[in-house]
Design a protein around this nucleic acid. Structure first.
Length: 272
DNA sequence: CTGTTAACCTGAGTGC
DNA sequence: TGCACTCAGGTTAACA
């Protein structure tokens, strides 16, 4: 489900409800997520206060008093709900964090590609976070960085920018949309893209992600913020999911190719 | 090292 | 109504 803008929307949605609250009770109903949820999760984070929230790529971090953190990844279908305690448990409600002040933070994930993992204060880094590429909004991400890193790479540029070791946060939707805005075909070899093109692409990646955050993300099937409100960025999609439809800019028919086992739509006229 | 593929899982949609 | 099949916003392990 969620790429960077959706995760950021969730983070902003839950923050006011969790900040300063203590974790009173942790309930794990199903440990079988992307990685097993530790059965002793309550013993490890119970009683601690949530002092902050953060995001690294598509990982959501709950920062706890004493320096511990809880890593939450939404995978493809994960959601976080802010509820009142005692809400009926539905199918796929895998983890509950009952907080002080009458707040229930509930993790729900039908496909179970998501993750809920403690990150102890004693560990300076975490295997899932280490090795990640720069944040697209950070100073160490720009077109020159993409250009240098991509030399001699034959893989399609779309795969290149979706690689979390290159830059975090661009998934299938926003990779396709930023390539459209930059006028670059997703199939082009990453190593053949020029420096000026990468400068434009880096700009468009930031632009697309920023607009999507402002719109509250993209709601295609089941994404919603913690308050249940949908995102509105889908109204600004130029190519994603529009195979066979006319390009909104030139009218040419949008095409689809499969790259890295992911559907990739582009305009054959606007993107070269 | 780079690149490609299969795999993890459930549910929604489509076509017969 | 049911069945078989395809596809879906992510990530990584295994392999060439």
């Amino acid at each position: 489900m969620p790429e960077l803008p959706e995760v950021e929307t969730v983070r902003r949605g839950i923050e006011p409800h969790v900040l300063g609250r203590r974790i009173v009770q942790v309930t794990v109903r199903d440990t079988r997520l992307r990685w097993p949820v530790p059965a002793d999760l309550h013993a490890r984070i119970g009683g601690k206060e949530i002092v902050g929230t953060a995001r690294r790529g598509k990982y959501l971090l709950l920062q706890l008093a004493g320096g511990d953190r809880l890593i939450v990844h939404l995978g493809m279908t994960g959601r976080l709900f802010v509820l009142k305690p005692g809400q009926p448990v539905k199918k796929h409600d895998h983890v509950d964090l009952e907080l002080s002040g009458g707040v229930l933070l509930r993790f729900h994930d039908p496909r179970r590609f998501g993750a809920v993992l403690p990150w102890p204060a004693s560990e300076p880094t975490h295997a899932l976070i280490a090795g990640m590429g720069p944040e697209p909004f950070g100073e160490d991400f720009d077109g020159d960085y993409l250009f240098e890193l991509s030399r001699r790479r034959s893989a399609p540029v779309k795969n290149f920018i979706m690689d979390g070791r290159v830059v975090v946060g661009a998934g299938n939707i926003y990779a396709a949309e930023s390539l459209f805005r930059a006028g670059i075909r997703p199939t082009r070899a990453a190593g053949k893209i020029t420096r000026p093109q990468y400068r434009l692409l880096a700009e468009k990646i930031r632009e697309v992600l920023e607009e999507a955050v402002q719109q509250g993300g993209t709601t295609l099937r089941d994404f919603a913020g913690a308050d249940g409100a949908p995102g509105y960025f889908q109204q600004k999609l130029f190519v994603y999911g529009r195979e066979g439809e006319p390009c909104l800019v030139c009218g040419a028919t949008i095409r689809k190719v499969v790259l890295g086992a992911r559907a990739s739509c582009y305009c054959p006229h606007c993107q070269k």
